[in-house]
C-alpha cells in the first residue's frame, strides 16, 4: 500500500464533549484503500511546542464524500491547535500508515474501547459488519456525557456502554460488563488505555478467544524510519508504526 503525503481540506469539526472532537477532512484526490486500524500522521501548524507530527487513528472513511474522520482528544497544545481548525483550513497528512485489524467472516465479534482509544473502532465495526460478522461494541467512559456517537455504532451492530459513575449503561469498567459472561464471542478487538487493554487481553486469554489490540506510542516518523516507537514482542523490539499498531496479544509480552 503506497504511503502518501497530501494536503486535506477541513470540512467540519464536530465537538463531542469538553475535550473530544471529530475532524472530517476531505482529500483533494481520490482516497486510496484504507483499512481499519490504520492511522495518519498530521502536521500541526502554529504551535511552538509541537515539533513533530501527531499520529491519529483513522476513525472513519467515507469514500462517497472522499473524507477521513479523525477522533481527537485535546491533550497538549498540538491537539488543541487541531481543535481550532475551521472549515476550509488545510491539514497536511501522511497516510495510510500501519497494519490493520483482522477481519474474520461470520463470527461473533466484540469490540472494546475506552477513552480516545475508541477512535479506530467505528471503521472496524463497519468492516466487520460488511464481512457478515455479528458486531458488539462495548465502550467504557467516565460519565454519560462521554458516551458519544452511539447511533453511528448502532448502524453496524449492538452498542453497549459502561460508565465509571453509573450515569449511563452499566456502572464500572468495560471488562466488568455482564455481556462478557452472557455471550460467547469468537474474536475480540480492543483499543484504549493500556490497563483496560490488558484486562481485555486477560479475559480473552482466559476464554481462549483470539484478541487484537491497537497500541499507542510516541512516534517521530510514523513509517518505520526512526525506530523510536518500539514495542517489546516475543520476537524482539518491533516498530508500533509499521509492524503495528495492531498486535495479536500472543505476540506481546503482556
Amino acid at each position: 500500500m503506497k504511503k502518501l503525503v497530501q494536503d486535506f481540506e477541513v470540512l467540519q469539526r464536530k465537538e463531542l464533549n469538553d475535550d473530544h472532537f471529530v475532524l472530517d477532512v476531505k482529500a483533494l484526490e481520490p482516497l486510496p484503500e484504507i483499512r481499519p486500524g490504520q492511522f495518519v500522521n498530521v502536521l500541526v501548524k502554529d504551535s511552538n511546542t509541537t515539533f513533530l507530527r501527531r499520529p491519529l487513528s483513522i476513525h472513519f472513511v467515507d469514500y462517497e464524500r472522499n473524507t477521513i474522520s479523525l477522533y481527537i482528544k485535546k491533550i497538549g497544545d498540538g491537539t488543541k491547535k487541531l481543535g481550532e481548525l475551521k472549515e476550509g483550513d488545510t491539514l497536511n497528512i501522511v497516510y495510510p500508515l500501519g497494519n490493520q485489524y483482522s477481519i474474520p467472516n461470520n463470527a461473533n465479534t466484540l469490540l472494546v474501547g475506552g477513552g480516545c482509544g475508541v477512535a479506530p473502532l467505528l471503521y472496524l465495526a463497519k468492516h466487520l459488519n460488511q464481512a457478515g460478522n455479528k458486531v458488539t461494541t462495548l465502550l467504557g467512559v467516565r460519565s454519560e456525557k462521554d458516551a458519544v456517537e452511539l447511533d453511528a455504532y448502532k448502524e453496524y451492530g449492538n452498542i453497549l456502554v459502561t460508565t465509571e459513575d453509573g450515569s449511563f449503561g452499566e456502572k464500572g469498567y468495560p471488562t466488568q460488563h455482564s455481556i462478557l459472561e452472557k455471550e460467547k464471542f469468537d474474536y475480540v478487538f480492543t483499543c484504549g488505555p493500556e490497563p483496560m487493554m490488558k484486562a481485555v487481553a486477560a479475559y480473552s486469554t482466559q476464554k481462549n478467544i483470539p484478541c487484537e489490540v491497537s497500541l499507542e506510542n510516541t512516534m517521530a516518523c510514523g513509517f518505520g524510519a526512526c525506530l523510536c516507537c518500539v514495542t517489546e514482542t516475543t520476537e524482539g523490539n518491533k516498530c508500533t508504526c509499521t509492524e503495528g499498531p495492531v498486535f495479536n496479544i500472543n505476540d506481546l509480552k503482556w
Partner: peptide, 17 residues
C-alpha cells in the same frame, strides 16, 4: 536490540532520541 521504550521525547524545536 537497542534501548528500551521510551526512546524519544519531543523538545522545543527538536527531539531527543
Amino acid at each position: 536490540e537497542g534501548n528500551p521504550y521510551p526512546r524519544m521525547a519531543e523538545t522545543p524545536s527538536g527531539m531527543l532520541n
